[in-house]
């Protein structure tokens, strides 16, 4: 996948009326799990948060020191930085329902 390999791949579509969803995906190299997770995430975001989200992919193999700051233990881990509060979802994000609950997206779309 395109955005995974560089340390910081950005997909930003801004919308001034809605708050920005700032998401960070921690991976460790291009593993199958990471690729799946990124694809799943992107699909969910496009469906529910079109135009108001930003995904940052962090490869811990390149920046191992970043794992400590966000308390990352599992790979892949998705961190919702904004809006607050901070939320974490671990796994390849295969279960869309759980991801929506985890990110608390229902309320936004519904």
């Amino acid at each position: 996948m395109k955005a995974v390999s560089p340390g910081k791949g950005k997909k930003a579509k801004t919308d001034s009326t809605e708050e920005i969803w700032n998401l960070r995906l921690y991976v460790a190299g291009q593993t199958q799990k990471s690729i799946t997770a990124f694809a799943n995430l992107k699909k969910i975001c496009e469906e529910h948060l079109a135009g108001k989200y930003r995904i940052e992919v962090i490869d811990l193999l390149k920046n191992p020191q970043l794992a400590k700051g966000d308390q990352i233990i599992a790979i892949p881990t998705l961190v919702r930085e904004l809006p607050e509060p901070l939320k974490k979802i671990i796994g390849d994000l295969a279960n869309t329902e759980r991801v929506l609950v985890g990110l608390d997206i229902r309320s936004v779309t519904g």
Partner: peptide, 28 residues
């Protein structure tokens, strides 16, 4: 030192994962 903090309330699990993050932290 490294303090690993895991709060179940903040974490949602969905799908397959591993603990590579822990390995990376320890290795670092």
């Amino acid at each position: 030192t490294d303090h690993v903090y895991i709060a179940r309330s903040e974490i949602e699990e969905t799908g397959d994962y591993d603990l590579e993050g822990l390995f990376i932290r320890l290795g670092n």
